[in-house]
Design a binder for these strands. Structure first.
Lengths: 216, 216
DNA sequence: TGTACATCAGTGAACGCGCGTTCACTGATGTAC
DNA sequence: TGTACATCAGTGAACGCGCGTTCACTGATGTAC
């Protein structure tokens, strides 16, 4: 696993030094902030440059356009989500399984709270068919999918889960739930469904669907 | 339930006649088509006008901007999804329950295939906090949510489902799965998970989580 | 059945703004000796 | 320890395009008698 800071390049291909790396980072952070404030449809190169007090020309030294910067932010998330994905590789079948799953679901909700704006844009552009974003999405999803599908196969082999479930589709459905549900949190809380209840519920659904433990 | 064609108005508030309604419709259809082709971030008023061979001024007679047209398309989906939502109000607990759920899930996948571009944009804008889109999303989701939450409560009352599940959160999680999963279909099929397997799996997850029937 | 008039619907052309993008340049940092 | 030079990093200002938007106008349709 190489340090991701290593091979950063400017748009002309040249490898960049420390000072330039800091500028690039500030541009990325500004892009993420504007994505959060204005949404995916309304972030301009000039806005980003203004936000960090730089010339628009500076932006073009590091990114070809706003989409390119969002792609770079998405790539970073692939790394940042790893610790959460690690939780999916643990054994959930023991007596502490439910607590474990709750903790993981809670962490992932936090992750969405922090990176929702970038995640939404990444998913949208991938859903719309952009190949570069599809690729990043695959890298982001793969560890979740592999780990969850393995759990399904395990539970099927030991007879706790019906073989009618497709392991990949099951993993995809549960990941889908985890990736859309955070967007409903505000609405839930306004209607009296607490964050804790959400976590408990998603954790139960995950635990039962992946280990075959009954919901009864 | 009033005929939705009734109170259509131009941007100046005037009620419009048949000829104008046709123009409005062609503009809406063109907007949906461009949304599908170019994605949510890149649909311009001029494009839409060009697409139907009209002057840009014509577009402004019916919509204040592209977002306004997308909102109108979203409102239409609230009506169009009703038949599918009706399936969620049926009794799933009988012996034909599983078949029923499969059929409904299949229909909803088709709905996504047809209206995915508009649905994605509606969800994105709502997720980003736009109040008008949040409102439409609520109207779109409410019948799904109400029906599914009722099923959870039923199953809890008859002891088939644990009371640890929050009915609203359960409904939300399953709806979330149904709304994100279609976006992964292409990836699934490339990897050998068929449409039928997806439907079967989602149907099983829905059926078990909402009726308390075991996945074992 | 025809004519005059009112209203509805649609348009071409123009304006101006803001954005994307580039270029020749300046300033900052690193390094050889 | 200082000086000369190379390279790295950042910039201001400008250009031009395309888009959003509007306005005065024309054409189409409906209706009264």
């Amino acid at each position: 696993m190489t340090d991701p800071v290593d091979d950063l390049t400017a748009t002309d291909g040249r490898v960049i030094g420390q000072r330039a790396q800091q500028t690039r980072r500030r541009l990325l952070d500004a892009t993420a902030a504007l994505l959060r404030e204005h949404g995916a449809l309304d972030v301009k190169v000039l806005d980003v440059a203004r936000e960090v007090g730089a010339s628009p020309a500076t932006f073009y030294q590091y990114f070809t356009d706003v989409e390119d910067a969002v792609l770079a932010l998405s790539v970073e998330l692939v790394e940042q989500v790893r610790p959460i994905q690690a939780g999916f590789e643990l054994d959930w079948s023991g007596p502490d399984g439910p607590d474990l799953v709750r903790a993981i679901v809670s962490d992932y909700l936090d992750f969405w709270d922090e990176h929702g704006a970038v995640l939404r844009t990444m998913l949208l552009r991938a859903d719309e068919g952009d190949e570069r974003f599809r690729r990043v999405r695959r890298q982001y999803n793969a560890p979740f999918m592999t780990a969850m599908a393995a759990k399904v196969r395990d539970a099927q082999q030991s007879g706790r889960l019906t073989r009618s479930l497709d392991p990949e589709a099951t993993a995809g459905a549960l990941l889908a739930a985890m990736d859309r549900l955070p967007n409903y949190r505000q609405g839930f809380e306004r209607r009296g469904t607490s964050r804790a209840a959400m976590i408990e519920t998603v954790a139960l659904l995950l635990h039962s669907s992946l280990t075959g433990r009954s919901l009864g």
